[in-house]
């Protein structure tokens, strides 16, 4: 199948936003767990890692803001809306059933927002639906290029977040090689010069785990390696 540049871009970003929802929820649960014991520095470091310019005044504001704040581009609600903005224009490729997992997540979030529900653990359904989205996509999408663009978007987002939150080398390197594997479907998709730089940086002898500037540079390469 032929894929237009706009469609490729939407597929890629659909993957990124779905992964952002999944990863953000995962990380928020960890922060939430620590906050139970009263460790406010955790939420402050959280928003700093996401380059957020505004902080929230309290843990409860932070929790609600990260869940429902439309104006916070890192919130779950914003990411779900952005995923939907892309998915709605891709219905014929990803199929209505796949799209429905985002619709259901938004509907649930809107309901919880209206109730000011602040217990992040109640959002397990959203995590489940993001996983179901991936399963449905794998089951229902026939075109390998379409599937690979979504998967590459997901992997890009995952690595970006892993770098920001200082995940260990092994996991980051593994995710990048999975990304490259998906790109075999469509070799022109990766910028070969940037890819070569990333591969070099990901060699065990070159990787500088504790070097913030190194991770920042790697993150920049990861975010520009896909030509979609």
């Amino acid at each position: 199948m032929i894929i237009s540049a706009n469609k490729a871009n939407r597929l890629y970003w659909l993957g990124r936003y779905v992964e952002r929802v999944y990863m953000t929820l995962h990380l928020l649960r960890r922060v939430y767990d620590k906050m139970i014991d009263g460790q406010p520095e955790d939420y402050e470091s959280f928003w700093q890692k996401l380059d957020m310019t505004d902080s929230y005044a309290s843990t409860s504001e932070f929790t609600l803001g990260m869940m429902y704040d439309d104006k916070n581009p890192s919130s779950l609600m914003s990411s779900l809306n952005s995923a939907m903005d892309n998915a709605i224009m891709l219905r014929e490729d990803i199929k209505s059933e796949t799209m429905s997992y985002i619709e259901m997540s938004i509907a649930l979030m809107k309901k919880y927002r209206s109730e000011a529900m602040s217990n992040i653990t109640n959002l397990q359904s959203v995590t489940d639906w993001m996983l179901a989205f991936g399963g449905s996509a794998a089951q229902r999408i026939d075109d390998p290029k379409v599937l690979s663009l979504i998967a590459i978007g997901q992997k890009t987002e995952k690595i970006d977040i892993m770098l920001r939150f200082c995940y260990c080398y092994d996991r980051i390197a593994a995710q990048y090689y999975i990304l490259r594997n998906w790109a075999k479907e469509w070799p022109e998709l990766l910028d070969e010069n940037i890819d070569a730089q990333i591969v070099e940086m990901l060699k065990p002898e070159n990787y500088k785990d504790a070097d913030e500037e190194f991770r920042w540079r790697l993150c920049k390469f990861i975010n520009t390696v896909v030509r979609a």
């Binding site: 224009m89 219905r91 014929e92 199929k95 209505s96």
Partner: peptide, 11 residues
């Protein structure tokens, strides 16, 4: 979008 999905045409 729904008709594109169901007819197999490209939107």
């Amino acid at each position: 979008s729904y008709l594109a999905e169901k007819t197999g045409a490209t939107l």
